[in-house]
Computed example of a mutant assay.
Amino acid sequence: MENDIYIAQKRISTENFLLKLNRQAHQLEVYKKADGQALRKNYSIRKDFVPCEYTIYEKIKEMPCLFGREDSPTPYGVFDIVKKSKVKEEYISGYHKKYERIKFFGYLVIFEDYFIHSDLYMDRVTSETFEQAEPISNGDTGTAGCIRVSQKNVEWLLENIEVGTTVIL
């Protein structure tokens, strides 16, 4: 149960979700806004407590992920999603040690050039062909700082997570 619930004090959030990078478990955790009963279920709270001044999130999903290597770490902090792509929209990046240009399909921008995105592909792969192509990122143990999740998970994020959603890194 530990770390399955987050409480934001005196902050009324309009966002339905909260994302958290769990570096030890190599998971991107997804929390959904919950009612006060989730808090009472997990913690001893006095009966006259009024949870309406708090935003409560309960973990609903974990996504295996990679994040920044020691030489190019993912920043620590609390950020908001500032931009998101359409599902399967391509992005060309120059942040790869071996290849000058690579692509990924679908992303959420966390901070500056730090994204949550899918597997990496050669730049000749297109949005029509990437599902049949072999990702060049198979076997990677870390990233250049971004958070990388499966294509299926990035598509779920794009369908459910809004710009403005808080991300704890």
Rank of each mutant, 00 (worst) to 15 (best):
E112F: 08
T129R: 08
I136Q: 06
F111K: 06
D119H: 15
H117Y: 10
E112Q: 14
E131A: 13
V109G: 02
L120R: 03
F115K: 01
F130L: 08
R124W: 14
M122W: 07
Q132Y: 10
T126S: 13
E128I: 00
V125P: 09
D113E: 14
V125W: 07
E100K: 09
Q132S: 10
Y99E: 07
A133H: 14
E100H: 08
E128L: 03
Y114V: 00
D113I: 00
V125H: 07
I136R: 04
S127N: 11
L120S: 08
V109M: 10
S127F: 04
I116Q: 07
P135E: 05
K103P: 00
I102D: 00
F104Y: 13
E131W: 10
L108C: 13
D119P: 15
F105P: 12
T129I: 06
P135F: 04
E128H: 05
T126N: 07
S127V: 03
L108A: 15
F104I: 01
G106P: 14
Y99G: 02
H117P: 09
I102L: 00
F104N: 04
D123P: 07
F111I: 00
F130C: 09
T126H: 05
V125A: 12
I102F: 00
Y99F: 11
E134M: 09
F115H: 01
M122A: 14
E131N: 13
D113M: 04
I116Y: 06
Y107F: 15
S118D: 15
D123Q: 07
F105T: 10
Y99D: 01
I102C: 03
F115N: 00
S118C: 13
L108N: 09
V109F: 05
H117F: 12
K103W: 00
E128M: 04
A133P: 10
S118F: 09
Y121R: 02
S118W: 11
Y99R: 02
L108D: 06
F130A: 08
H117D: 09
Y121V: 00
I136C: 06
Y99H: 06
H117T: 11
I102Q: 01
V125K: 11
L108V: 09
T129H: 11
F111T: 03
E131M: 14
E134I: 08
H117I: 10
Y114T: 00
P135K: 06
D119F: 12
K103M: 02
T126P: 04
F111D: 04
V109Q: 13
Q132M: 07
Y121I: 04
F105D: 12
E134S: 11
M122D: 13
V125Q: 07
I110C: 01
D113R: 07
E128S: 07
I116F: 06
I110F: 05
D113H: 10
V109I: 13
Y107E: 05
F105K: 15
F130G: 06
T126F: 04
R124D: 15
V109E: 07
D123G: 01
D119Q: 15
G106W: 10
